[in-house]
């Protein structure tokens, strides 16, 4: 039988309402990426992670477990699982199963983004334990009753620290703060900019490195929700990284399948395979700009292609690695 949608979403909603995230992260796990950067706490301008990069290894692991159960009798026990999870965070144990090197890789991407901004001369702080989950998965699944109070908590954290400008690191969080929060939180008026736009505007900071072409996979949300299309291309050009475009690119980009990974892992994989086939027609070194695209396309590509977050490509250019 298919995964019980209401129960799975119920668990995610319960977690958000009780524990502040669909998949609770310890404060240390959420903030470890910033170690060694000496970012000031708070300030007028902050980098906001929204926890998406930090959550991806656990979401990936959970999706893998759910995929195994997708057609099995185990799904009948999910209702009991939801009941128990209200009192004991079963989903927290998923975090404990995440391999350390996976977590380290996604932390390194966030670290690279912050380094790129610093190298580009951008001044910003970080909210550390008050950098809260953005609520994007809950919102996308229509869990408005759990999302609305959470959004108010996130907005209050920004207000408490005197934040006026937010630099986001992924497309989903950018969309949430630009378009969704103002609808759910009265008076929410922050300037919200993607780090790609900030870097493109800042100029400088990138050093040329010519180590092979990358194929661009645009995120649906960057391309069709918030209009971040040109900046990644500007940055690749500036870094001296040659790039190619698949047939469906920019505003016409094709989805990676990732948004339905949790509830419909089979469908997500099917869509990802389709996209990988489109991308590998052009080249086998692919760059993404969203951690959801990254993980989903990587799983579908296997050894057929190297898939890198654009922060890895740009930071590699910076470090001469």
């Amino acid at each position: 039988m298919p995964l019980p949608t209401a129960t799975v979403l119920g668990i995610l909603g319960d977690n958000l309402a009780r524990r502040g995230s669909v998949l609770p992260l310890s404060k240390r796990t959420a903030t470890r990426w910033a170690e060694g950067l000496d970012l000031p706490k708070g300030g007028d301008t902050v980098i906001y992670t929204g926890h998406l990069y930090q959550l991806i290894p656990a979401i990936d692991l959970m999706a893998g477990l759910l995929a195994r159960f997708e057609e099995s009798w185990v799904t009948r026990l999910f209702g009991l699982g939801r009941f128990v999870n209200r009192f004991i965070s079963l989903t927290f144990f998923i975090q404990l199963l995440v391999p350390r090197r996976k977590r380290a890789e996604y932390n390194a991407m966030l670290h690279a983004i912050a380094r790129l901004l610093k190298d580009g001369g951008v001044s910003f702080g970080y909210l550390y334990e008050d950098d809260l989950y953005s609520g994007t998965l809950a919102y996308d699944e229509g869990l408005d009753e759990a999302f609305a109070p959470h959004a108010r908590r996130v907005a209050e954290a920004f207000r408490r620290h005197g934040v006026r400008r937010v630099i986001t690191v992924d497309p989903h969080t950018t969309h949430m703060l630009q378009e969704v929060y103002p609808r759910f939180v009265p008076g929410f008026k922050l300037e919200v900019v993607s780090y790609l736009d900030v870097l493109a505007e800042a100029g400088g900071g990138l050093r040329a490195r010519r180590d092979g072409q990358v194929v661009i996979h645009d995120s649906c949300v960057y391309a069709r929700y918030v209009g971040v299309i040109e900046s990644p291309r500007t940055l690749l050009r500036r870094a001296g990284v040659p790039f190619a475009e698949p047939e469906l690119t920019g505003a016409a980009t094709h989805c990676c399948g990732g948004p339905v990974e949790v509830l419909f892992p089979g469908e997500a994989h099917r869509i990802a395979l389709e996209r990988v086939a489109q991308l590998t027609k052009v080249g086998r070194r692919i760059t993404t700009m969203c951690p959801i695209c990254l993980v989903n396309l990587r799983k579908a590509a296997g050894d057929e292609a190297e898939i890198l977050d654009i922060s890895q490509v740009l930071a590699g250019a910076n470090d001469g690695r």
């Binding site: 949608t5 649906c220 989805c255 948004p259 869509i271």
Partner: peptide
């Protein structure tokens, strides 16, 4: 059709 409602990718290819 609840599974179809939840399996929409929200990718906005249609909307665009």
């Amino acid at each position: 059709h609840v599974p179809q409602i939840y399996s929409c990718l929200l990718c906005r290819m249609c909307e665009a």
